[in-house]
Simulated scan of single mutants.
Amino acid sequence: MDHKTSLTQHIKAPADKVWAVISDIPGSAATLSGVDSIQMLTQGPYGEGTRWKESRTMMGRSETVEMWVTQCEPPVPAHGGSAGGGARGGSTTVKALQGGADYTSRFALAERDGGTDLTLTFGAELVNPTRLSKIMMAMFGPIGMRITRKALAKDLAEIAAKAESL
């Protein structure tokens, strides 16, 4: 059983500035009000294999989840050398396993109208689901996804605010 949702936020900033925000894992607790703390598990620049523990409070409960980057394609600088030309595209995928579920978050950047559309696609899939977990997901999955979608929309708005302030 798989649950997915996708949201897009238009950001009045070039893709390279948006990328700078989403790839700044150590700084994400300062950017995202839903993130309580970050503990880096790997050193070096953001890329495939980057790992960290992220603590968030959702529905009044704090949880810490280990996350890692499985795919990373930074934006490509625009051609032509024009001042303020920005960058094009870019995407990254982050995974986490928690409570019997496999979570995937994919961020995709696309230039549009002098800014960047940041699309976040989030999915949750049960790992080795039991009959009971399937029933519980059918009953409570839609509620959980509504709560998750609201939290993701807030994250995107906060990413936009940070990128637009750079």
Results as ranks from 00 to 15, higher is better:
K17N: 05
S6A: 15
I22G: 02
M40W: 11
T31A: 04
D16R: 04
W52N: 06
I11C: 01
P14D: 12
P26C: 07
W19R: 01
K53L: 09
S28N: 13
W19Q: 00
V35G: 11
M40S: 13
H10M: 01
G27S: 08
E48R: 10
T5Y: 06
D36S: 14
M40H: 13
Q9P: 04
K53R: 13
H10L: 04
S37C: 13
L7K: 05
E48M: 12
D16F: 02
V35F: 08
K4F: 06
S37Y: 11
R56C: 05
D24K: 02
K53T: 10
A30C: 12
D36W: 13
A29S: 15
K53Y: 07
R51S: 09
H3I: 14
D24A: 11
P45F: 07
E54G: 08
T50W: 08
M40N: 11
H10T: 02
S37V: 10
A20F: 03
W19T: 02
D36E: 15
Q43D: 15
Y46C: 14
G49P: 10
T8R: 00
T42H: 09
S6E: 15
R51A: 11
T42I: 11
Q9G: 02
L32Y: 02
Q39I: 13
S28I: 10
I22A: 01
K4H: 12
G27T: 09
H3D: 06
L32I: 13
T31P: 04
L32K: 03
A30I: 10
G49Q: 14
H3M: 14
A29N: 12
K17Q: 10
K12H: 06
V35L: 12
I25E: 09
P26H: 10
E48G: 10
P26I: 06
R56V: 08
P14F: 04
D24P: 10
G47L: 06
H10G: 01
T42N: 08
S6G: 06
W19E: 02
V18Y: 00
P26G: 11
T31G: 04
E48N: 08
A30D: 15
K53I: 13
P45E: 12
V18H: 00
Y46L: 14
G47Q: 14
A30Q: 15
S55C: 11
E48W: 02
R51Q: 12
A30L: 14
D24T: 04
A15D: 02
G27W: 05
S6W: 02
Q39G: 07
S6H: 07
H10K: 06
R56I: 09
A15K: 01
S23R: 06
Q39L: 13
I11N: 00
A13W: 04
T57I: 13
V21Y: 00
T57H: 08
Y46A: 15
S37A: 15
H3T: 14
D24N: 14
A29C: 12
G34W: 03
K53V: 11
R56W: 04
T57E: 10
I22C: 01
W19A: 03
Q9I: 01
